[in-house]
Design a protein around this nucleic acid. Structure first.
Lengths: 193, 193, 193, 193
DNA sequence: CATGAATGAGGGTTCATTCAT
DNA sequence: GATGAATGAACCCTCATTCAT
């Protein structure tokens, strides 16, 4: 196995373990065991456990950004609706979902560096959504006085609420309709005319 | 100090440490030190560290529910605002905050059996808020066609968004203004006339 | 065994291991094994391995200071001669000697804190000897213009030369006569009249 | 690069690292990095890290003897002074210093068998210096009754004292002036007329 | 001639827990 | 009711070394 492959494998194993057991329980010995290699080998590919966790976090956010970037639509508001339904659709998906590992990172003890990096990535995600809202202003669909950063955060709040409901097993709130309704209320309130 | 008093003291110390540093960092040695007793004594009152943590969690949730159930205000909408600002106020509070333990429960591995307990409590919390909204209908402040369950979940979504932002270290979203704005948008949309 | 006894035992074991194997090889696992306890127990008595090593260093310097303080004599110059012959007499002594552990500390890699503490202790030793020379000035036996710090260091150089010769196995230089001769040359050069 | 060249390069890199950081910190990974080759390549040229260290030590001692045997000066006393100042000058020198390895040898555990080799070399060094003193007698600069072996040992004691002071971190004794003064006292005491 | 990929053994340290007193 | 003394297991990480290519 080449270095690149091995590195990729370690990252995947790490994300998997974080999703299943949380950050704290994702120890170097467990990562090594799951990857079928020695602990020492981990350190030939990563400088520290934290770096493995950060790489796993990157993998999680790759999925997050795919959800934000993938939906297409006639205009920016349609794309925001598309993000909402795409997100709702993959919440429990093993291949594309990210809720478990993402919230394990959120709930992780404030270890050195991890939280800052998490915040940095999430800020980019919120900014991406804010950019779509700004596009909406250009299209004349969103009122010009709208605070796009505020609205982006509110939209993210909707996704999070669905995620948290899913994690808690509050199934009646996870079917998408609730989230869609909340989303529409926000979009209505920012619509022009 | 009687056994009951000592036990109570340990629980309070544990809750305090969890709120301040998270579950992981709440070690038996720290609990003992903070309580001014030996580690061995902890085990005369609790069978394990986990039991100390669970007792602390119960105390935490008692507080959460007290906040929801003992709202103040001239009317139901004021009380909802009161819950919102109280929540925002204690998010990062050492003495009263409960975000850490709440989300460590949220992210707890599924097999731990904690999820069910958490979901049950959270349903009660949402229902309590829905009841306040129903009261609002009686007072003529909330439109009768409003789905109070939906709105209750949306309000909780605001709290969660603040919590998650806090845990992620997104400090610019934790100051309360953002949450207040989101809350007001929801309350406006359900207000009668 | 009480805490104090155990601590004392750990220090002795540590000094012994340093003398026999050097600082680097004096690992926590070896200290624990030699003391017949677990590694964890070491840390109930010392905060770190460095503290164990420092305590062992203290034990070494207790012996050094005993050599400096013990000799009696009619005057200060006599006492300096006494120190020289006392030191020569115990160089290879198991119970009173300190050459092996002392030079293991000298040769140790510049670990955090160790070197500074070693320097501090040795400075005190040199100063103690300088004080005796100053007494000699008071007695009118030593010329007033003599730099007592310089001479103290030169006297220590004699002891070190004997120590190093001993460690190297240069037995023809360890018998005391060489050192005594070197000592006398220095004392002569500082004598009044 | 031929095998011989590569080997030579590794030895030089090793010596350099030892002089700068001590034996312990001279790890195979550092040697490889400094030489710009892989760790595996080290083992194509040396059977073990110990062999690399021994080869580096040989290089170090070659230098030491060159310093003693190739003195400059108008006469023997000048040459002795030259040796002293040269020694003082390179004590903490990264490129030429040899104090670390020398004293790690001095403090090596008796059973390692290194002591004998070291003692043999050191005797040669002392004898070389004694020979210079004998020359001084021939030149009429040194009193004929002087015990040249004794004086040689005393001169070496000066070097050792500087070395030990350096290793201990007694910086106030390492600047050369102290050693020079001690050296002059000895030379004065043996000077003819 | 060189190295990429790997590792077993060990480093110092912290943890929750036990038990005789 | 309390604790002093102890520990096995695990933590993250580094080391010198190997071997197929």
């Amino acid at each position: 196995m080449t270095a690149a492959e091995r590195k990729q494998q370690i990252v995947e194993v790490t994300m998997d373990l974080v999703a299943r057991n949380g950050v704290q329980a994702t120890t170097t010995s467990r990562i090594a065991a799951q990857a079928g290699i020695s602990e020492a080998t981990l350190y030939r590919h990563f400088a520290s456990r934290t770096e493995m966790l950060l790489a796993a976090m990157d993998l999680v956010y790759e999925r997050v950004f795919r959800v934000i970037r993938t939906p297409e639509g006639n205009n920016s508001l349609d794309r925001l609706r598309g993000i909402g339904s795409y997100h709702a659709g993959i919440i429990g998906d093993d291949a594309e979902g990210f809720v478990y590992p993402l919230f394990e990172f959120v709930a992780a003890p404030p270890e050195a560096g991890l939280r800052e990096q998490l915040a940095a990535r999430q800020r980019i995600a919120i900014d991406s959504i804010a950019a779509i809202i700004e596009e909406g202003k250009g299209e004349g669909l969103v009122r010009p006085d709208v605070d796009s950063g505020q609205i982006a955060w509110e939209l993210v709040a909707v996704y999070w609420a669905q995620d948290v409901s899913y994690l808690m097993g509050l199934t009646e709130y996870t079917n998408g309709a609730r989230g869609q309704q909340m989303l529409e209320r926000i979009l209505t309130s920012i619509s022009a005319a």
